[in-house]
Nucleic acid binder design. Sequence first.
DNA 1: AAATATCCGACAACTTCAGTCGGATATATA
DNA 2: TATATATCCGACTGAAGTTGTCGGATATTT
Lengths: 146, 146
Amino acid sequence: MLRLSKKADYGLIAVRHLAEQPKHTACSAKEIARAYGIPTELLAKILQKLAKGGLLVSQHGTNGGYTLAKPAREISAFEVIRAIEGPLFITSCVTDKRECSQMTRCTVREPLQKVNETLVKALSAVTISSLSDSSGALVQIEGGAL
Amino acid sequence: MLRLSKKADYGLIAVRHLAEQPKHTACSAKEIARAYGIPTELLAKILQKLAKGGLLVSQHGTNGGYTLAKPAREISAFEVIRAIEGPLFITSCVTDKRECSQMTRCTVREPLQKVNETLVKALSAVTISSLSDSSGALVQIEGGAL
DNA sequence: AAATATCCGACAACTTCAGTCGGATATATA
DNA sequence: TATATATCCGACTGAAGTTGTCGGATATTT
């Protein structure tokens, strides 16, 4: 079905939420989870991955939580998804290790990798700020160009 | 990880194989499966779906099998994938039924659906004939890496 | 010291995917 | 007509991934 995982969805929602906060105001995992009805412990682990991936900055202790590590305009949906789900490949064969030893004449792969590149570009063009702003105007322009 | 299923891969390989056959020459599921090391029964079911989806024409009996229902240039990778995996949605929420009742303020969906449209266009632009044509030389280079 | 919150691994329930099996129907050939 | 071939179809199993939970360790503020 080629769909994005819920974790990625949750991550995008959370990052967008952080982008709408007044600057230097941290949000805890619990706070965001409750706001959107996401399981707290699950979102906590997602935010940890985003922090580990350098997209968020974490702060321990009372009134701690997460803040964006960069301006919202410099964070793309692709970065968020990759930090949560790992490298993004549309083909089922090529992951990290060698597979596909069975089908020597598989010419399907190369054209699909170009589709993969197109997808990465499309996801990279969607910034977190574009999710918050009007969620329409900017993206419609870029959507037409792709 | 947002990857295509093996079934879709198998389907693309099989359709491309059929596209390379001399006209009006049918190939059986068993024949194709053995040529690429794909489990016979599995490929059989995939080809049945493609036939049901109107992309292939099936022929019972001895020397029967499958042939393309249309010229290879008029069959896209998107059609093959959709016939096998069903409708293609990148977002995890929107499928056929209404979900996402929890998050009312979810502005993530709309920009991602445009990414989805981009992906569909990219997959639609990849025709089966394009899998056969240019790939020969190029893929043998990459074939060593597989 | 206490409350808060990130961090981390292990685990269970659930769903999907990949592959298998048995059997029914249809067709060409001898 | 008999036989071999091949599509067709549903049900089933095992593997793998997804989703969510739990317990506990560490860090920080009050």
